[in-house]
Each structure stands twice: as structure tokens, then as C-alpha cells.
Design a binder for these strands. Structure first.
Lengths: 134, 134
DNA sequence: TTGAGATTTAGACTAACTCTAAATCATAGG
DNA sequence: CCTATGATTTAGAGTTAGTCTAAATCTCAA
């Protein structure tokens, strides 16, 4: 069902990789590698920690999952692979996806200012989420 | 000379903290904690690794330095404490500061989309720096 | 001069990965 | 059906960046 973008010899969507992808796809939130390891172990009891990391790298390079790195603590993984931005709640730590429609112009403006040849932009909003505001 | 923003009992700009601040202030680039440790040791030979980290936390909380965390590898420190954005070269890894004048509106737009009460925005451009472009 | 609190120090510890080498698996050729 | 070649997985050791701890040292007001 999932289309592999990545080609090259011997890069298959194995049982383990499928389990990891399944875990990420069925979750609404943004699990860490460790969360994924625990959930994947429920589907495939023998799966190892290293394999989860290997699978995450494979899936990321294949464009099937998106890795979010804030410097704080562990990377989080996201089933949403289209370009988008993140809002991080300063109270509860919740991470929410959103998309800024003006992203393309934004990238151009940032490129003009920095003199870089642009490849991608990512915006992070820090603030208080609706739940914590209430 | 540096104004302490942070007050509260017993939070002094000690010799060690001043050395750390001095290292950051005299550099054009964005050193890691380890770079800072090595440079600070040249000024204050006995300074310990832990003290550099303690000082960096102190200086950050006092608003005297800015910490940049990309998920990749170590945090970097920046003498520029005003709000600004970063461009990261995908070829050579160089990190450059720039400022987007429309940041305030941007924050509002992001807040609208995400429904968060905004506190700060940060934008990261990935691309190729002028040196690598040439 | 003293002593209470702040700060520094060395080094142990931790979290989050990454690496390694041996075992296992998948499959194309015989 | 066998086999062997390369890809993949595994357990566990290693690494990196940073935090913690407890003892030593410093500072300064009383």
C-alpha cells in the first residue's frame, strides 16, 4: 500500500519497517523513537531497539515519515510528510502541526535576507495551547 | 559593563561567568559548549566543564547570550540576544543569523493557524550559503 | 573573624542515539 | 529443491552532549 519513493538495491519495506510505519500512521501525536519502540514491540515482540532506529532512518529517507527535531530531548516522528510548521506549548509541551499558506513567499524573503539559495523553511511558534489557555 | 537583567539573591557575574561571556562575545561564529570550554580554559586554566555549562545556563537566563538548538548535534551559543532567525547551509553546515522584519505579523499569522497564544516565533531556512553557491 | 549561602570542581551518571559483528532472512541461480 | 550472496536484524557495547552530586572553596555581611 505505501509507495516506496526510494529505489536502489535491496531496500525493502520489511515486516519490521512496516510495523514501525504502522505505529506512526496510527497515532495522532508525535511519538519519540522510544514510544515507537514500545508500540512496535507489541506488534512484533522480537523487534530490537536498533531496528527501530534503522527503520526510522529508512522511512525518513524514503519520504514516508517526517522527523521533528527540537533541540530539547528526543526527536519526534510525524506521519505528515508535507511541508508544515509546528507550535510547541510552553506549559504542557504539546506539539501541534499547522501550515502557513504564505510559506513560499516567506522562504523567498528569508533567502533575500540571508543571501542563501533556499531549499526549505520551517517555522516554530512557541506559546500556550488552547487547552492550557483555558 | 554587561548589565545583569536577572536579579534575585546571589546571582553574580563571577570570574568564570565573565570568561564564558567574553569567549562568546569575541567570536563571530556560533561556538558549541565544548568550543567555549576550550577557549575559556585559555583564559582561566582551572575552569571546569560543569562550570561552563552552569555559566551558560546562567547567562542564558540572564538574557546575555542566546542558545540555538537544532536537533543535530550540540547546542550553539550566540552573542546576539535580539530576536532573529537562522539560515543553515546544507553543504558546509555554516549557521548565519538574519532577521525577518515581518516577524511580528508572522507570529500573529502562526497564532491564528495554530490557535496558540503566541510567545515567540523562530524561522529556519535551509539552503546553500553564498560561499558554497559560488 | 565567622559562618551561611552561593559557586566551583571532578567525576560519576544519564538519555538518546550510533556502531559493530554475528546471526538470520530472502531470493536468484543452479 | 539447494545454495550462496547480499540485505536486514539483533544484542549489546560505545559515543556524545549534557546533567547531577557532594565535597571544597569563595564571598561578604554581621
Amino acid at each position: 500500500m505505501p509507495k516506496l519513493i526510494k529505489t536502489g538495491t535491496g531496500e525493502k519495506l520489511t515486516r519490521q519497517r512496516e510495523a514501525v510505519l504502522g505505529v506512526i500512521r496510527e497515532r495522532e501525536d508525535h511519538p519519540t523513537a522510544n514510544d515507537i519502540f514500545e508500540a512496535a514491540r507489541r506488534r512484533l515482540p522480537g523487534i530490537s531497539y536498533a531496528t527501530v532506529y534503522n527503520s526510522l532512518r529508512f522511512l525518513r529517507e524514503a519520504g514516508l515519515v517526517h522527523e521533528i527535531k527540537f533541540g530539547d530531548s528526543a526527536s519526534r516522528y510525524d506521519r505528515e510528510t508535507d511541508r508544515h510548521d509546528h507550535a510547541l506549548c510552553s506549559q504542557c509541551g504539546k506539539l501541534v502541526d499547522f501550515d502557513l499558506p504564505q510559506a513560499a513567499e516567506l522562504m523567498k524573503a528569508a533567502a533575500r535576507r540571508s543571501k542563501f539559495k533556499p531549499e526549505s523553511v520551517h517555522l516554530t511558534l512557541k506559546g500556550v495551547c488552547p487547552d492550557c489557555c483555558a
